[in-house]
Design a binder for these strands. Structure first.
Lengths: 110, 110
DNA sequence: CCGTATCCCTTAGGATACTG
DNA sequence: CAGTATCCTAAGGGATACGG
């Protein structure tokens, strides 16, 4: 259970899955879509998703190389689940923000 | 979106929500159920869930005090969503483990 | 019983520089 | 283009001790 939920806690997992749910994409395309991500994290995130079987990696050995990533069936299933949670998040965002500001003003932390 | 997903990344959020989804519980009860949690993290986790409006805290000012936690409507809605993901996780656990061991043996890291 | 306060270690992840 | 390698800091969270 944790082995799956831990992924969600990582900074770029959800956005990367969302990006790939629109179809296969090259490394550079994904990187450009994920504003603010470092090259290090882009690679790390993709590797972890690949390791878990969510993402497939195809290398075109041209010069310079072209590497494409796409969701596997497992990855597609997973990203669908995650999308549900993201939807829930969006729908309840305002309630959460209200709860937080209420809590913070009550427990006045100067 | 992140403000909600970040919670999931925290070590004890999901198990605490699961524990509370069975109904109101006292601090000590929850703590005992979450094997391995430190008192510090128990309190921190509950505070964060309370701050987000997922959990309600009732204090009975006896000596010694009795403090009860329970899910709010928002918290119940959230924990239901999370439970779906946990279910997915359990169902696909073996596929994930297989993917990982396959990946690891391929990318032999001595 | 229900916390808070400290100390400390491990990990996530950003910045930057370098390669096939 | 698609990565690695290194360095560095900030945050998560465990252990322990103390308090109303």
């Amino acid at each position: 259970m944790r082995l799956i939920l831990d992924r969600l806690g990582e900074r770029w997992t959800v956005t990367t899955l969302a990006e790939l749910s629109n179809g296969p994409k090259r490394y550079r395309e994904i990187e450009r879509a994920l504003v603010g991500i470092s090259q290090r994290m882009m690679t790390l995130t993709l590797r972890r998703l690949e390791r878990d079987g969510y993402v497939l990696r195809h290398v075109e050995p041209t010069v310079p190389p072209s590497v494409t990533y796409e969701l596997s069936d497992l990855g597609y299933s997973f990203s669908t689940q995650v999308a549900l949670l993201v939807t829930w998040s969006r729908e309840h965002k305002s309630k959460l923000e209200l709860a937080r500001s209420t809590f913070d003003s009550k427990h006045d932390q100067s």
